[in-house]
């Protein structure tokens, strides 16, 4: 393990100074140092998406992204998307479709869909299916996820 260094992070528009192993994946910094627990540990192998966050507008798997590489960049997590009073359109659609079952995967699907639709909301169902194909949901909520993302795409277009 490398020795700890001082790292500054910007998460959901707030700045934080941490003392951590710079090679540690961002996921552990968020969850354990900052108590931002929306992103989940699913695989640690960039295979499932449970840990997805948005860094400078692009979705990334925080389980395989070192804290060091995200220094000074804008990190967004599910906590920074919207609130019950003012939800992000994708969150609104996920609620309307009552998507989650266990919900452990949901932060990842949300963040990935947000990045996709914020880049360009004009997406066909086929494009949406393709763009989300590397995410896992063991409960099998795919049908409601796809309905929700299609719904959000329309709302955002």
């Amino acid at each position: 393990m490398a020795t700890k260094e001082r790292i500054s992070l910007n998460v959901n528009n707030k700045s934080y100074d941490l003392e951590v192993d710079p090679n540690m994946p961002l996921l552990y910094a968020l969850r354990n140092e900052l108590d931002i627990t929306g992103p989940k540990f699913g695989c640690g192998l960039a295979q499932c998406g449970a840990c997805a966050v948005i860094v400078d507008g692009r979705v990334m798997r925080s389980c395989m992204t070192s804290v060091r590489s995200t220094q000074g960049r804008q990190i967004r997590t599910i906590e920074g998307l919207g609130t019950p009073e003012n939800p992000h359109p994708v969150q609104k659609a996920f609620i309307e479709e009552a998507v989650p079952q266990c919900g452990y995967c949901i932060s990842g699907w949300l963040m990935t869909s947000v990045a996709l639709l914020e880049e360009n909301p004009r997406r066909s169902d086929a494009e949406i299916r393709q763009s989300l194909s590397s995410l896992k949901c063991r409960c099998g909520t795919h049908m409601s996820i796809l309905r929700a993302v299609n719904r959000a795409a329309k709302a955002m277009a």
Partner: peptide, 20 residues
Amino acid sequence: PRIDVPGKVFGQTPYVTDIK
């Protein structure tokens, strides 16, 4: 409406993994 949905969609439901 399902009781558990909003907490999960706003990242507010604590899971066993989140207990400190």
